[in-house]
Design a protein around this nucleic acid. Structure first.
Lengths: 358, 358
DNA sequence: CTGAAAGCGCTTACAG
DNA sequence: CTGAAAGCGCTTACAG
C-alpha cells in the first residue's frame, strides 16, 4: 500500500532512524543523506504528518479564528497570517465564528484537540471577557480586539484615537450634529464609540450613538431608519467597512446627497471606497502589518512562554476624501489621484508605527 | 501532564477501548456512556486528533487551494466550503498559490503528507493540464477551472456562454469595437475569451483580445495603455472582478466617461459594482452554490471512488447596469433599486440551475 | 456490551 | 554518525 519510512529505509539500506534524521536536521553523513534522498525519490515517499505530530508533539499548525473571512479586513489579515505561517513551515486552520460565542467555544475546543502550536483570534466581547490568562491551553494572540487587560497578547488599532480623529476632522469642517453607528459585539467597536464620545465631549457636542450588529445589512436598516427622522444627524461615522457600505446604500435609498445632506466617514480603506462618488473618508488600518505583528507576537510567545503579556497598538491613517467635505453640492471629482485627499490639519500625525509595545 | 484516554478510563473505571467507543459511535451501555462522559468532564479530557487520525486513517480534513483569498470570488467560495466542511465534522486547511505553479506543487505535496480526505482546488492552466486522472493520491474537485477532460470532478461556470451574453448585450446596445482583456493563467479566462471571440464572429466583428495577469494592477496598467491609443475600443470586457476594478481605475485616470467614451462590462457581482457611478454590468456567479456543489461532489467522490468523473456547469446571471448603456452622457442614477438594471432582452435566460451534471 | 493486545508511522533518547 | 527499541495516544479487530 502506501509507502512508509520503513520502505525508504530498506531501499536506502539504512535504519528508519537514519531516514528520519536525514529528512530532518539530524546529523548524517553526506553519503547516507544522498542515498536516503534517492530512496525517497524512488519510492515516492511522503511522510505522514499525523504520525510526525503525534510523536514529536509539534503540530506545526496555527489556528486562525475570525468573525467572517468575507469581511475584507479579516480577509487581508488572514492572508498576512497565512504567508507568515507557511514561511515558517506551519499550516493554517481557518474558522469563521459569525460573532457567535457558541461557535467560538467550539473552535477553541477544536484547537485544543488539534494541539495547535498557537492561535490568532478575533474574539467577541463576551468571549474575550470570559477568558482569563490561564483559560487557554495554547499560546494565543488576539487581533483587532483585546480582552481582559494583561490576560493575552494582542495587536489592536488605536481605536479611540482613530475615532476621535474622525470627529476632529468633521468638526473642523463645521459639522456639529455628528452621529455614530457602532458594532455591538466587539471591544473594538466599544473603543471606537468611546473615542467618538470623548471627542464630542471635548467640543461640547452631544454624542448621538447607536449600535447594531456589525454587518452591512444591519447598518443599512438602522441607518435608513435613523436618517429618515427629521432630526437626523448631518454627519455619520460608521465603525467598520461593512457598515460603511450599508450606510452608503441607505443614503442612496433615501436620496440623500453626500456630503451635502449627510457627511459620511468610517473605517477600513477598502478599494471601493475611493471608487464611489463621492470618495469616502476612512481610517485606513495597517492590515498586513496587523497580521504580521500577530504572528511575530505568537512566535515570540511560543519561544518565551513566561514573558510578560504584550499589547501592540498600531495607529490608523486618516484618508480624507470628499464625503466629509463641508458644503457639499460642489463635489469635485479627482480622477488622477488615487487618494484625492484635500489637505487638512489632522491633529495627531497618524502613521503605521507601533505606538506602544509593552 | 496532559490528560489522555487512559486517565479517563481510570476515572470511569473502564478500559480505554470502552472510552473510545463511548466517545465515538461504538456500542456501549447507557450507564457506561454516562460514566465516561462524567469522567471526561471531570478530567477535562480532549482527544488528540493527531493520534486519532494516525490510527483511524481518517484525516477529516479538506484542503482548499485557491489563487488568492483576497479575490472576493474565492473569499465567498471558501466561506461556503468551510461551512460545509465544518458541518460535516471536517477541518479546512487553506492555501494561497498566487497563480504560481511552484506553490501549487508545494501545496499538493502538503496535502499528500496531511493524508487529507479531499481537496478543492482552483488550479492554474499549467498545473491543471499536467494533472492526469491518477496524478493525485486524494479525491479532488476543481472549482472555477477545469483540467483535462474527464480527468477530475469539477464545478465551473458556463464561461463561454456568459462571455457571449456580454457581447450579445453590447452589440444589442450598438457597440461594435468591443475589446476583451482576459486573465492569462486559467482555463476559465481562456474559455471566456473563446466565448467572446465566438460571439464576435457571429456578428462578423473583429475580436480585440489581450491577456494579462488576472489582477487589478496588471489590468489597470494594460487598460491604461490600450485606452490611450487612438483606435481604442468603444467597449471593454474584463474577465474577472479584480480586473474590472483595474479598468475602472484606468478610465478615471484617463478621464474617460463611462459609458459615453467607453462601455465597461465584466465578471463577478461584487458589492461595489453597483455603488460606483455608473453601475457596472457584470455576470454574477453563484459563488455560494459553487462552493457547496464542490463539497457535494467531493463527498460523493469519497463515497464512490470509482464513479465516472463529473462536471457541474453552472450558469451566470447577467446583471445589466448603466456602464453598458449606449449613448452615455445622460447617465441616470437610480438610487432606489439595488440593481438599477435597465430592461433588455438577454438571449439565453441565465439562472443558477445546474445545466449539466454528468 | 466489554477488555487485552496490537499497531497506525513516525521520532527520540540511549548506546555504541 | 548509526541502529535497536521504545513509545507518542489513540482505534480496532479479536475474543469473550
Amino acid at each position: 500500500m502506501s509507502v512508509g519510512i520503513r520502505d525508504v529505509a530498506r531501499v536506502a539500506g539504512v535504519s528508519t532512524a537514519t531516514v528520519s534524521r536525514a529528512l530532518g536536521r539530524g546529523p548524517v553523513s553526506d553519503a547516507v543523506r544522498e542515498q536516503v534522498e534517492a530512496a525517497v525519490r524512488a519510492t515516492g515517499y511522503r511522510p505522514n504528518l499525523s504520525a510526525r505530530r503525534l510523536r514529536s508533539k509539534a503540530a506545526q499548525t496555527i489556528g486562525l479564528i475570525v468573525a467572517d473571512i468575507r469581511n475584507p479586513f479579516f480577509t487581508a489579515v488572514s492572508r498576512a497570517v497565512e504567508d507568515a505561517a507557511y514561511a515558517a513551515g506551519m499550516r493554517v486552520i481557518l474558522c469563521n465564528t459569525d460573532e457567535d460565542p457558541a461557535r467560538e467555544a467550539m473552535y477553541l475546543r477544536l484547537m485544543e484537540e488539534e494541539r495547535v502550536t498557537g492561535v490568532i483570534f478575533a474574539p467577541t466581547k463576551v468571549t474575550a471577557d470570559g477568558l482569563r490568562a490561564d483559560s487557554l491551553s495554547f499560546p494565543t494572540v488576539f487581533i483587532d480586539r483585546s480582552g481582559l487587560p494583561g490576560a493575552h497578547d494582542s495587536v489592536v488599532l488605536d481605536n479611540a484615537a482613530a475615532a476621535a480623529s474622525l470627529v476632529d476632522h468633521l468638526v473642523a469642517q463645521g459639522f456639529k450634529r455628528i452621529g455614530g453607528l457602532f458594532g455591538s459585539t466587539s471591544s473594538t467597536a466599544r473603543e471606537r464609540q468611546a473615542g467618538y464620545a470623548a471627542a464630542m465631549a471635548r467640543y461640547d457636542l452631544a454624542p448621538l450613538a447607536r449600535s447594531v450588529a456589525p454587518n452591512a445589512a444591519a447598518a443599512e436598516t438602522e441607518a435608513t431608519r435613523w436618517l429618515s427622522q427629521p432630526d437626523r444627524p448631518e454627519a455619520l461615522i460608521l465603525s467598520n467597512g461593512l457598515m460603511l457600505m450599508g450606510a452608503v446604500r441607505a443614503t442612496r435609498t433615501l436620496g440623500l446627497a453626500v456630503p451635502k445632506d449627510l457627511a459620511l466617514a468610517g473605517f477600513d480603506n477598502e478599494p471601493w471606497t475611493d471608487l464611489v462618488e463621492p470618495g469616502l473618508t476612512v481610517i485606513e488600518q495597517p492590515v498586513a502589518e496587523i497580521g504580521a505583528q500577530a504572528m511575530r507576537l505568537l512566535f515570540e510567545r511560543i519561544e518565551h512562554p513566561g514573558q510578560p503579556v504584550r499589547k501592540v497598538t498600531l495607529s490608523g491613517r486618516a484618508v480624507l476624501r470628499s464625503s466629509t467635505r463641508r458644503g457639499g453640492g460642489l463635489v469635485i471629482q479627482c480622477p488622477l489621484a488615487r487618494y484625492p485627499a484635500f489637505a487638512l490639519p489632522l491633529r495627531p500625525t497618524l502613521g503605521f508605527l507601533p505606538r506602544s509595545l509593552g
